[in-house]
Write a protein that binds this DNA or RNA. Structure first.
Length: 466
RNA sequence: GCGCCCUUCGUCUAUCGGUUAGGACACCAGAUUUUCAUUCUGGGAAGAGGAGUUCGACUCUCCUAGGGCGUACCA
């Protein structure tokens, strides 16, 4: 294992959005680098020019920066290093660790079936043969050992042994001269000085093949750790029907990046009984060796719980900007005066919110304009007796400062002076204030409306002029 | 088919040969209460199955079952 300063890297392929599992892999890489005082790098694996897209690259950058998992250096684009990759393959060719293979797709198909029947991996007939017309279309394959075994001392899974006969002679250079992934990762990780390869479980099989390539080059093999995938709540592979896969979707659903980081870190990794922890604590505690071996399922309820926690902690100005975006996105752009009050309102309303979308929802009753249409339930509550009581309440509240702290005791005092429980008029008052829409507790509802608006709504409902 | 990996409450996890198997989310009940929510208190809930090793296994080994990943001129 390398004894140099730690260098980790996240190496996604830009063929789609940034998957939540990939985001966690990136997080783990960054945490480990920070924990060891090392460096965290980003490399875009775009050797397949057909499948790689610009929007996908943008989505990765955007997703990572939203999550707050950004590399310590400029990202490397793998395809820009194609010349270096080809050069490396030529070295392998010269050293006899690779060979030119002229198999046609048909022949390959036959060999594939034969190999399968014999229970071994693909080997080309060109392994020990040279062509009379060396310039004919061909790929360059790795010449893997036929015997022996390759051992991976996986940082999370432990010792994994592969029989070399099971490992195929993989293609290093395609017919068009383009390098393949398995060759490019090895060359790039080596050139970038990567000491610890922390990646998804779906790459374990490649670990052995890549180890062989490192050895052929005579390079030091980096430490590797394969982290389990994230599954949907039902245990199946995460897909659209589970609600979300892309980090961008989580952002749109009103989750905070720090909540995502906390939740993701806790998914598949743990530090004793700690559930909620800061980024600094995560860095202090994290170790790849402590990553859990088995795949984890996404649990929306727990994510919501953690998000609610971070919403309570979040700065109201910041939340206001987020909520405002939600409102605009919904086509409910808040008026200037509402905008100005947003931070204060959010301070009052964020208590039970699980997402910023919830906060936006809770703003609904405030945004209504007078006179409010009352729902049937509220209308039914407005008996003559209650109307009279609400009128008296209005008079006494007119003398009160409209803050939650002042309103709370004021309402209680009124209830006592009337000699009835709050239940006798509370429901009706809430209905009059909100028109029947969901609203928080009385004091908070009144405070968030403000004195003028609140008393105005009350007078509207009682048929009084304000 | 073959190879590799995984398997503790519903979920995320702790335990790293000796524990009443702990915590969190969720759930249920009770308390508080001006709706919902919040808050508080309490509760139910787990070592896939079978063989070993051992004085003693959730912890170690093997088998079975189930699940995942891979098996590309994708990454």
């Amino acid at each position: 294992m390398p004894s140099r300063p730690v260098v980790t890297r996240f190496a996604p392929s830009p063929t789609g959005f940034l998957h939540i599992g990939g985001a966690r892999t990136a997080l783990f890489n960054q945490l480990y680098a920070r924990h060891t005082g090392g460096t965290f790098l980003l490399r875009i694996e775009d050797t397949d020019r057909q499948r790689s897209t610009e929007p996908a690259v943008a989505a990765i950058f955007e997703g990572l920066s939203w999550l707050g998992v950004t590399p310590d250096a400029e990202p490397v684009f793998q395809h820009s290093r194609a010349d270096r990759h080809r050069e490396a393959v030529m070295d392998l060719l010269a050293a006899g660790h690779a060979y030119r293979c002229y198999m046609t797709v048909e022949e390959l198909e036959i060999e594939r079936e034969r190999a399968r029947a014999e229970g071994r991996a693909i080997r080309s007939v060109w392994r020990d043969r040279t062509s009379n017309s060396p310039d004919a279309p061909h790929v360059i394959r790795f010449r893997g050992p036929l015997e022996g075994e390759t051992v991976i001392n996986d940082l999370v899974k432990g010792r994994i042994v592969y029989q070399n006969i099971e490992l195929d002679d993989l293609v290093l250079l395609r017919t068009d001269g383009a390098p393949t992934y398995n060759l490019a990762v090895v060359v790039d990780d080596h050139d970038m000085g990567v000491t610890h390869v922390i990646r998804g479980d779906d790459h374990v099989n490649n670990a052995a093949r890549q180890t062989l390539i490192y050895q052929a080059f005579g390079w030091e093999v980096p430490a590797m750790g394969h982290i389990p995938l994230i599954h949907g709540p039902d245990g199946a592979k995460l897909s659209k029907r589970h609600g979300a896969q892309a980090v961008g979707e989580f952002a749109d659903m009103g989750y905070l990046p720090e909540a995502m980081r906390n939740y993701l870190a806790r998914l598949g990794w743990g530090h004793g009984d700690d559930e909620i922890f800061s980024d600094a604590q995560a860095v202090e505690w994290f170790d790849v060796a402590d990553v859990v071996r088995s795949p984890a399922r996404l649990d929306w309820a727990k994510l919501a719980f953690i998000n609610a926690h971070y919403i309570k902690l979040a700065d109201n100005e910041r939340l206001a900007a987020l909520v405002s975006d939600v409102l605009i996105h919904r086509g409910e752009k808040p008026h200037a005066d509402l905008s100005a009050r947003l931070p204060d309102l959010i301070g009052l309303l964020k208590e039970g919110a699980k997402t910023t979308l919830d906060i936006a929802d809770s703003l609904g009753f405030i945004a209504k304009t007078r006179p409010l249409a009352l729902d049937a339930k509220t209308a039914g509550l407005l008996t003559d007796e209650t109307r009279a009581r609400l009128a008296r309440l209005g008079q006494s509240l007119a003398k009160v400062e409209f803050t939650r702290e002042s309103l709370e005791p004021a309402i209680r005092a009124f209830s006592e002076s009337e000699g009835v429980g709050i239940g006798k008029f509370g429901q009706a008052l809430r209905g009059v204030m909100s028109g029947g829409s969901p609203a928080p507790d009385l004091a908070t509802t009144l405070a968030s409306l403000g004195k003028d608006e609140a008393l105005g709504r009350l007078n509207d409902a009682l048929g009084l002029s304000s």
